[in-house]
Nucleic acid binder design. Structure first.
Lengths: 198, 198
DNA sequence: TCTATAAAAGAATGAACATTCATTTATATT
DNA sequence: AATATAAATGAATGTTCATTCTTTTATAGA
Protein backbone atom coordinates (compact mmCIF):
# COMPACT_ATOMS: atom_id res chain seq x y z
CA UNK A 1 0.00 0.00 0.00
CA UNK A 2 0.98 3.57 -0.52
CA UNK A 3 2.51 5.30 2.53
CA UNK A 4 1.58 8.60 4.07
CA UNK A 5 3.63 11.60 3.14
CA UNK A 6 4.45 13.38 6.40
CA UNK A 7 5.39 16.49 4.48
CA UNK A 8 1.82 16.77 3.27
CA UNK A 9 0.35 16.77 6.77
CA UNK A 10 2.98 19.22 7.96
CA UNK A 11 2.26 21.54 5.05
CA UNK A 12 -1.46 21.43 5.78
CA UNK A 13 -0.93 22.18 9.47
CA UNK A 14 1.49 24.99 8.80
CA UNK A 15 -0.56 26.73 6.15
CA UNK A 16 -3.73 26.36 8.17
CA UNK A 17 -2.10 28.04 11.14
CA UNK A 18 -0.91 30.91 9.02
CA UNK A 19 -4.31 31.32 7.42
CA UNK A 20 -6.07 31.52 10.77
CA UNK A 21 -3.56 33.98 12.13
CA UNK A 22 -3.77 36.16 9.05
CA UNK A 23 -7.48 36.09 8.24
CA UNK A 24 -9.16 34.63 11.30
CA UNK A 25 -11.36 31.53 11.37
CA UNK A 26 -13.48 33.11 8.67
CA UNK A 27 -10.49 33.03 6.40
CA UNK A 28 -9.73 29.34 6.78
CA UNK A 29 -11.36 27.66 3.79
CA UNK A 30 -10.57 24.07 2.92
CA UNK A 31 -10.16 24.81 -0.74
CA UNK A 32 -7.84 27.74 -0.22
CA UNK A 33 -5.93 25.70 2.32
CA UNK A 34 -5.58 22.83 -0.15
CA UNK A 35 -4.19 25.21 -2.73
CA UNK A 36 -1.78 26.79 -0.24
CA UNK A 37 -0.51 23.39 0.91
CA UNK A 38 -0.25 22.08 -2.67
CA UNK A 39 -2.66 19.29 -2.02
CA UNK A 40 -6.09 18.20 -3.12
CA UNK A 41 -9.00 19.18 -0.87
CA UNK A 42 -9.77 15.52 -0.46
CA UNK A 43 -6.29 14.88 0.91
CA UNK A 44 -6.96 17.08 3.91
CA UNK A 45 -9.73 14.68 4.86
CA UNK A 46 -7.28 11.80 5.00
CA UNK A 47 -5.44 13.48 7.85
CA UNK A 48 -8.32 15.26 9.54
CA UNK A 49 -11.89 14.21 10.09
CA UNK A 50 -13.31 17.61 9.21
CA UNK A 51 -12.64 21.32 9.54
CA UNK A 52 -13.33 21.40 13.27
CA UNK A 53 -11.03 18.45 13.85
CA UNK A 54 -8.27 20.21 11.95
CA UNK A 55 -8.58 23.28 14.14
CA UNK A 56 -8.64 21.26 17.33
CA UNK A 57 -5.62 19.17 16.30
CA UNK A 58 -3.79 22.38 15.50
CA UNK A 59 -4.52 23.70 18.95
CA UNK A 60 -3.42 20.51 20.66
CA UNK A 61 -0.11 20.60 18.81
CA UNK A 62 0.64 24.25 19.49
CA UNK A 63 -0.42 23.86 23.09
CA UNK A 64 1.97 20.98 23.53
CA UNK A 65 4.82 22.98 22.01
CA UNK A 66 4.06 25.84 24.35
CA UNK A 67 3.84 23.57 27.39
CA UNK A 68 7.13 21.87 26.56
CA UNK A 69 8.90 25.15 26.02
CA UNK A 70 7.53 26.43 29.33
CA UNK A 71 8.88 23.51 31.31
CA UNK A 72 12.48 23.59 30.08
CA UNK A 73 14.66 23.58 33.21
CA UNK A 74 11.59 23.83 35.43
CA UNK A 75 10.70 21.58 38.32
CA UNK A 76 7.51 21.91 40.42
CA UNK A 77 9.60 21.39 43.54
CA UNK A 78 11.65 24.51 42.91
CA UNK A 79 11.57 27.49 45.19
CA UNK A 80 9.04 30.04 44.20
CA UNK A 81 11.17 32.83 42.89
CA UNK A 82 13.44 30.58 40.87
CA UNK A 83 10.56 28.53 39.47
CA UNK A 84 8.51 31.52 38.49
CA UNK A 85 11.46 33.27 36.90
CA UNK A 86 12.33 30.22 34.80
CA UNK A 87 8.77 29.70 33.67
CA UNK A 88 8.25 33.35 33.01
CA UNK A 89 11.31 33.66 30.84
CA UNK A 90 10.54 30.38 29.06
CA UNK A 91 7.08 31.59 28.19
CA UNK A 92 8.35 34.96 27.08
CA UNK A 93 10.97 33.34 24.88
CA UNK A 94 8.44 31.00 23.30
CA UNK A 95 6.02 33.81 22.54
CA UNK A 96 8.66 36.02 21.01
CA UNK A 97 10.12 33.22 18.91
CA UNK A 98 6.80 31.75 17.81
CA UNK A 99 4.48 34.67 17.24
CA UNK A 100 2.19 32.64 15.00
CA UNK A 101 1.69 29.94 17.64
CA UNK A 102 1.06 32.55 20.26
CA UNK A 103 -1.35 34.44 18.07
CA UNK A 104 -3.22 31.28 17.18
CA UNK A 105 -3.50 30.14 20.79
CA UNK A 106 -4.80 33.53 21.88
CA UNK A 107 -7.29 33.61 19.05
CA UNK A 108 -8.58 30.21 20.08
CA UNK A 109 -9.04 31.23 23.70
CA UNK A 110 -12.21 33.15 23.01
CA UNK A 111 -13.52 31.07 20.19
CA UNK A 112 -16.23 28.45 20.52
CA UNK A 113 -13.57 25.79 19.89
CA UNK A 114 -11.81 26.47 23.13
CA UNK A 115 -14.12 24.45 25.31
CA UNK A 116 -13.86 21.42 23.03
CA UNK A 117 -10.09 21.74 23.13
CA UNK A 118 -9.82 21.95 26.89
CA UNK A 119 -11.68 18.68 27.18
CA UNK A 120 -9.18 16.93 24.95
CA UNK A 121 -6.04 18.34 26.53
CA UNK A 122 -4.04 16.19 28.89
CA UNK A 123 -3.74 17.99 32.18
CA UNK A 124 -0.30 17.00 33.40
CA UNK A 125 0.83 20.52 32.62
CA UNK A 126 -1.92 22.12 34.65
CA UNK A 127 -1.26 19.67 37.46
CA UNK A 128 2.44 20.51 37.53
CA UNK A 129 1.58 24.18 37.80
CA UNK A 130 -0.86 23.56 40.64
CA UNK A 131 1.71 21.51 42.49
CA UNK A 132 4.30 24.24 42.16
CA UNK A 133 2.00 26.89 43.59
CA UNK A 134 0.94 24.71 46.48
CA UNK A 135 4.53 23.93 47.43
CA UNK A 136 5.26 27.61 47.38
CA UNK A 137 2.25 28.43 49.53
CA UNK A 138 3.12 25.71 52.05
CA UNK A 139 6.66 27.02 52.32
CA UNK A 140 5.19 30.48 52.80
CA UNK A 141 7.08 31.75 49.77
CA UNK A 142 3.93 33.23 48.25
CA UNK A 143 0.89 35.05 49.54
CA UNK A 144 -1.89 32.53 50.14
CA UNK A 145 -4.24 32.85 47.18
CA UNK A 146 -6.61 30.92 44.97
CA UNK A 147 -4.51 29.42 42.18
CA UNK A 148 -6.37 31.52 39.63
CA UNK A 149 -5.34 34.80 41.25
CA UNK A 150 -1.75 33.71 41.45
CA UNK A 151 -1.90 32.66 37.82
CA UNK A 152 -3.48 35.84 36.55
CA UNK A 153 -1.01 38.09 38.36
CA UNK A 154 1.95 36.01 37.30
CA UNK A 155 1.34 35.59 33.59
CA UNK A 156 -1.50 37.74 32.29
CA UNK A 157 0.73 40.85 32.23
CA UNK A 158 3.32 38.98 30.19
CA UNK A 159 0.82 37.94 27.55
CA UNK A 160 -0.59 41.44 27.43
CA UNK A 161 2.85 42.86 26.77
CA UNK A 162 3.53 40.28 24.09
CA UNK A 163 0.28 41.20 22.37
CA UNK A 164 1.21 44.86 22.34
CA UNK A 165 4.67 43.99 21.09
CA UNK A 166 3.24 41.86 18.30
CA UNK A 167 0.73 44.43 17.14
CA UNK A 168 3.45 47.05 17.45
CA UNK A 169 0.77 49.17 19.02
CA UNK A 170 1.28 50.33 22.57
CA UNK A 171 -0.92 52.77 24.39
CA UNK A 172 0.43 56.08 23.27
CA UNK A 173 -2.10 56.53 20.50
CA UNK A 174 0.10 57.89 17.77
CA UNK A 175 2.81 56.25 15.76
CA UNK A 176 5.18 55.36 18.59
CA UNK A 177 5.94 51.68 18.45
CA UNK A 178 6.06 49.50 21.53
CA UNK A 179 8.94 47.04 21.66
CA UNK A 180 9.12 44.44 24.39
CA UNK A 181 12.85 44.19 25.09
CA UNK A 182 14.76 42.36 27.78
CA UNK A 183 14.87 45.37 30.05
CA UNK A 184 11.12 45.76 30.08
CA UNK A 185 10.66 42.05 30.65
CA UNK A 186 12.89 42.10 33.68
CA UNK A 187 11.18 45.19 35.06
CA UNK A 188 7.82 43.48 34.74
CA UNK A 189 8.97 40.20 36.21
CA UNK A 190 10.36 42.09 39.18
CA UNK A 191 7.01 43.72 39.83
CA UNK A 192 5.18 40.43 39.51
CA UNK A 193 7.47 38.87 42.09
CA UNK A 194 6.98 41.85 44.37
CA UNK A 195 3.22 41.44 44.15
CA UNK A 196 3.26 37.74 44.97
CA UNK A 197 5.91 37.53 47.67
CA UNK A 198 4.63 37.82 51.24
CA UNK B 1 -40.68 59.71 3.41
CA UNK B 2 -40.66 56.68 5.59
CA UNK B 3 -38.64 57.00 8.81
CA UNK B 4 -36.04 54.65 10.20
CA UNK B 5 -37.14 52.23 12.84
CA UNK B 6 -34.55 52.44 15.59
CA UNK B 7 -35.77 49.17 17.02
CA UNK B 8 -34.67 47.43 13.85
CA UNK B 9 -31.12 48.65 14.07
CA UNK B 10 -30.99 47.81 17.76
CA UNK B 11 -32.28 44.31 17.10
CA UNK B 12 -29.69 43.76 14.38
CA UNK B 13 -26.87 44.95 16.63
CA UNK B 14 -28.00 42.92 19.58
CA UNK B 15 -28.53 39.68 17.70
CA UNK B 16 -25.26 40.08 15.83
CA UNK B 17 -23.38 40.45 19.09
CA UNK B 18 -24.98 37.35 20.51
CA UNK B 19 -24.25 35.36 17.36
CA UNK B 20 -20.58 36.28 17.40
CA UNK B 21 -20.25 35.49 21.08
CA UNK B 22 -22.00 32.17 20.69
CA UNK B 23 -20.63 30.88 17.40
CA UNK B 24 -17.64 33.07 16.61
CA UNK B 25 -17.18 35.16 13.47
CA UNK B 26 -17.74 32.01 11.47
CA UNK B 27 -21.21 31.83 12.88
CA UNK B 28 -22.29 35.33 11.90
CA UNK B 29 -24.19 34.95 8.65
CA UNK B 30 -26.23 37.80 7.26
CA UNK B 31 -29.18 35.57 6.46
CA UNK B 32 -29.29 33.96 9.88
CA UNK B 33 -28.85 37.38 11.44
CA UNK B 34 -31.75 38.76 9.41
CA UNK B 35 -33.96 35.92 10.58
CA UNK B 36 -32.90 36.35 14.22
CA UNK B 37 -33.57 40.08 14.12
CA UNK B 38 -36.89 39.65 12.29
CA UNK B 39 -35.77 41.66 9.35
CA UNK B 40 -35.03 41.17 5.68
CA UNK B 41 -31.40 40.59 4.75
CA UNK B 42 -31.57 43.70 2.59
CA UNK B 43 -32.56 45.79 5.58
CA UNK B 44 -29.25 45.14 7.28
CA UNK B 45 -27.59 46.88 4.35
CA UNK B 46 -29.59 50.03 5.00
CA UNK B 47 -27.93 50.40 8.38
CA UNK B 48 -24.53 48.91 7.59
CA UNK B 49 -22.37 49.13 4.50
CA UNK B 50 -21.44 45.46 4.64
CA UNK B 51 -20.57 42.62 7.01
CA UNK B 52 -17.21 44.11 8.00
CA UNK B 53 -18.78 47.47 8.66
CA UNK B 54 -21.36 45.83 10.91
CA UNK B 55 -18.66 44.16 12.97
CA UNK B 56 -16.62 47.33 13.26
CA UNK B 57 -19.65 49.41 14.26
CA UNK B 58 -20.46 46.82 16.88
CA UNK B 59 -16.98 47.08 18.29
CA UNK B 60 -17.08 50.86 18.38
CA UNK B 61 -20.35 50.81 20.28
CA UNK B 62 -19.29 48.23 22.85
CA UNK B 63 -15.95 49.94 23.28
CA UNK B 64 -17.69 53.21 23.99
CA UNK B 65 -19.94 51.55 26.56
CA UNK B 66 -16.94 50.00 28.24
CA UNK B 67 -15.01 53.28 28.25
CA UNK B 68 -17.94 55.19 29.70
CA UNK B 69 -18.48 52.62 32.41
CA UNK B 70 -14.78 52.70 33.26
CA UNK B 71 -14.73 56.46 33.76
CA UNK B 72 -17.68 56.76 36.16
CA UNK B 73 -16.42 58.77 39.12
CA UNK B 74 -12.91 58.80 37.71
CA UNK B 75 -10.70 61.82 37.10
CA UNK B 76 -7.20 61.68 35.59
CA UNK B 77 -6.02 64.11 38.25
CA UNK B 78 -6.86 61.70 41.06
CA UNK B 79 -4.23 60.23 43.29
CA UNK B 80 -2.92 56.94 42.07
CA UNK B 81 -4.42 54.52 44.52
CA UNK B 82 -7.86 56.08 44.46
CA UNK B 83 -7.91 56.43 40.67
CA UNK B 84 -6.76 52.91 40.06
CA UNK B 85 -9.19 51.45 42.55
CA UNK B 86 -12.13 53.27 40.97
CA UNK B 87 -11.18 52.27 37.48
CA UNK B 88 -10.46 48.73 38.48
CA UNK B 89 -13.79 48.27 40.17
CA UNK B 90 -15.63 50.02 37.35
CA UNK B 91 -14.07 47.69 34.82
CA UNK B 92 -14.78 44.65 36.94
CA UNK B 93 -18.39 45.70 37.37
CA UNK B 94 -18.86 46.28 33.66
CA UNK B 95 -17.38 42.92 32.75
CA UNK B 96 -19.49 41.04 35.22
CA UNK B 97 -22.69 42.83 34.24
CA UNK B 98 -22.07 42.70 30.49
CA UNK B 99 -20.49 39.35 29.80
CA UNK B 100 -21.51 39.44 26.14
CA UNK B 101 -19.86 42.83 25.56
CA UNK B 102 -16.76 41.65 27.34
CA UNK B 103 -16.65 38.42 25.42
CA UNK B 104 -17.15 40.19 22.11
CA UNK B 105 -14.44 42.74 22.81
CA UNK B 106 -11.97 40.03 23.79
CA UNK B 107 -12.81 38.01 20.72
CA UNK B 108 -12.17 41.04 18.54
CA UNK B 109 -8.78 41.72 20.12
CA UNK B 110 -7.07 38.95 18.22
CA UNK B 111 -9.12 39.05 15.07
CA UNK B 112 -8.02 40.72 11.85
CA UNK B 113 -10.71 43.36 12.45
CA UNK B 114 -8.94 44.76 15.46
CA UNK B 115 -6.47 46.89 13.59
CA UNK B 116 -9.20 48.47 11.47
CA UNK B 117 -11.12 49.21 14.65
CA UNK B 118 -8.25 50.85 16.47
CA UNK B 119 -7.84 53.29 13.60
CA UNK B 120 -11.45 54.39 13.86
CA UNK B 121 -11.57 54.73 17.64
CA UNK B 122 -11.37 58.17 19.17
CA UNK B 123 -8.47 58.25 21.56
CA UNK B 124 -9.70 60.55 24.31
CA UNK B 125 -10.02 57.50 26.54
CA UNK B 126 -6.46 56.36 25.92
CA UNK B 127 -5.23 59.90 26.42
CA UNK B 128 -7.01 60.20 29.76
CA UNK B 129 -5.39 56.99 30.90
CA UNK B 130 -1.95 58.18 29.82
CA UNK B 131 -2.45 61.46 31.63
CA UNK B 132 -3.44 59.66 34.80
CA UNK B 133 -0.33 57.48 34.81
CA UNK B 134 1.98 60.38 34.11
CA UNK B 135 0.53 62.42 36.97
CA UNK B 136 1.03 59.47 39.24
CA UNK B 137 4.63 58.99 38.12
CA UNK B 138 5.43 62.68 38.54
CA UNK B 139 4.00 62.63 42.05
CA UNK B 140 6.12 59.53 42.70
CA UNK B 141 3.00 57.55 43.55
CA UNK B 142 3.94 54.78 41.12
CA UNK B 143 7.11 53.03 40.08
CA UNK B 144 8.46 54.70 36.97
CA UNK B 145 7.52 52.44 34.07
CA UNK B 146 6.58 52.45 30.43
CA UNK B 147 2.83 52.98 30.25
CA UNK B 148 2.40 49.53 28.73
CA UNK B 149 3.97 47.77 31.70
CA UNK B 150 1.84 49.72 34.12
CA UNK B 151 -1.22 48.91 32.08
CA UNK B 152 -0.52 45.21 31.78
CA UNK B 153 0.15 44.77 35.48
CA UNK B 154 -2.88 46.82 36.45
CA UNK B 155 -5.59 45.31 34.28
CA UNK B 156 -4.49 42.14 32.52
CA UNK B 157 -4.96 40.06 35.69
CA UNK B 158 -8.49 41.37 36.06
CA UNK B 159 -9.47 40.38 32.54
CA UNK B 160 -7.86 37.00 32.99
CA UNK B 161 -9.91 36.39 36.12
CA UNK B 162 -13.08 37.52 34.39
CA UNK B 163 -12.41 35.09 31.55
CA UNK B 164 -11.99 32.22 33.96
CA UNK B 165 -15.11 33.28 35.80
CA UNK B 166 -17.09 33.42 32.57
CA UNK B 167 -15.96 30.06 31.32
CA UNK B 168 -16.56 28.68 34.80
CA UNK B 169 -13.27 26.93 34.33
CA UNK B 170 -10.44 27.71 36.68
CA UNK B 171 -7.14 25.91 36.77
CA UNK B 172 -7.89 22.96 38.95
CA UNK B 173 -8.55 20.62 36.04
CA UNK B 174 -11.60 18.77 37.28
CA UNK B 175 -15.12 19.95 37.87
CA UNK B 176 -14.44 22.61 40.49
CA UNK B 177 -15.91 25.89 39.33
CA UNK B 178 -14.10 29.19 39.65
CA UNK B 179 -16.24 32.09 40.85
CA UNK B 180 -14.87 35.61 40.86
CA UNK B 181 -16.44 37.10 43.97
CA UNK B 182 -15.85 40.40 45.72
CA UNK B 183 -13.32 38.92 48.11
CA UNK B 184 -11.11 37.63 45.32
CA UNK B 185 -11.38 40.91 43.45
CA UNK B 186 -10.22 42.85 46.48
CA UNK B 187 -7.36 40.42 47.09
CA UNK B 188 -6.21 40.86 43.52
CA UNK B 189 -6.54 44.62 43.49
CA UNK B 190 -4.46 44.74 46.68
CA UNK B 191 -1.66 42.79 45.03
CA UNK B 192 -1.76 44.95 41.94
CA UNK B 193 -1.40 48.06 44.06
CA UNK B 194 1.45 46.46 45.97
CA UNK B 195 3.25 45.73 42.70
CA UNK B 196 2.92 49.25 41.36
CA UNK B 197 3.51 51.38 44.44
CA UNK B 198 7.13 52.43 45.01
C1' DT C 1 6.76 -9.34 -10.28
C1' DC C 2 2.20 -9.34 -8.82
C1' DT C 3 -1.46 -7.99 -5.63
C1' DA C 4 -3.78 -5.73 -2.20
C1' DT C 5 -4.41 -1.47 0.02
C1' DA C 6 -4.42 2.99 1.40
C1' DA C 7 -2.90 7.62 -0.22
C1' DA C 8 -3.88 11.12 -3.30
C1' DA C 9 -6.21 13.50 -6.76
C1' DG C 10 -9.75 16.29 -9.40
C1' DA C 11 -14.20 16.92 -10.41
C1' DA C 12 -18.65 17.20 -8.66
C1' DT C 13 -22.48 18.16 -5.22
C1' DG C 14 -25.70 20.69 -2.87
C1' DA C 15 -25.90 23.91 0.79
C1' DA C 16 -24.95 28.33 2.52
C1' DC C 17 -22.88 32.55 1.70
C1' DA C 18 -22.84 38.04 1.03
C1' DT C 19 -24.90 41.15 -1.55
C1' DT C 20 -28.19 43.36 -4.89
C1' DC C 21 -32.52 44.16 -7.49
C1' DA C 22 -37.19 45.27 -8.37
C1' DT C 23 -41.05 46.21 -5.81
C1' DT C 24 -43.97 47.65 -2.10
C1' DT C 25 -44.85 50.41 2.04
C1' DA C 26 -44.92 54.10 5.34
C1' DT C 27 -44.56 58.83 6.33
C1' DA C 28 -42.91 63.91 6.31
C1' DT C 29 -43.76 67.57 3.59
C1' DT C 30 -46.46 70.08 0.32
C1' DA D 1 -55.19 64.41 -0.26
C1' DA D 2 -51.32 64.11 -3.21
C1' DT D 3 -46.45 63.55 -3.78
C1' DA D 4 -41.89 62.55 -3.10
C1' DT D 5 -38.64 59.81 -0.76
C1' DA D 6 -36.34 56.65 1.78
C1' DA D 7 -37.26 52.35 4.50
C1' DA D 8 -38.26 47.77 4.03
C1' DT D 9 -38.95 43.62 1.71
C1' DG D 10 -38.57 38.74 -0.62
C1' DA D 11 -36.68 36.78 -4.24
C1' DA D 12 -32.79 36.21 -6.95
C1' DT D 13 -27.70 36.26 -8.14
C1' DG D 14 -23.42 34.32 -8.63
C1' DT D 15 -19.88 32.77 -5.64
C1' DT D 16 -17.66 30.08 -2.37
C1' DC D 17 -18.11 26.73 1.00
C1' DA D 18 -17.26 21.84 3.27
C1' DT D 19 -17.42 17.52 1.99
C1' DT D 20 -17.71 13.28 -0.91
C1' DC D 21 -17.33 10.38 -5.07
C1' DT D 22 -14.76 8.02 -8.46
C1' DT D 23 -10.56 7.17 -10.27
C1' DT D 24 -5.65 6.90 -10.33
C1' DT D 25 -1.16 6.16 -8.15
C1' DA D 26 2.43 4.52 -5.19
C1' DT D 27 4.25 1.03 -2.37
C1' DA D 28 4.59 -2.71 1.38
C1' DG D 29 4.25 -7.45 1.58
C1' DA D 30 3.35 -11.86 -1.04
Amino acid sequence: MRTRDEHKEAAIREKALVMVVKDGFDGLSMQKLAKAANVSPATIYIYFKDRDDLIIQLWLEEMKKMANATLVGFDPAMHFEEGLRIQWLNRAKFCMENPASMHFLEQMKFSPYHEMCMKKMDNTFIKAMGEFVHHAINRKEVVKLPVEVYWSIAFAPLYQLVKMHMSGRGLRGGSEKFVLDEKIMNQTLKLVLKALKP
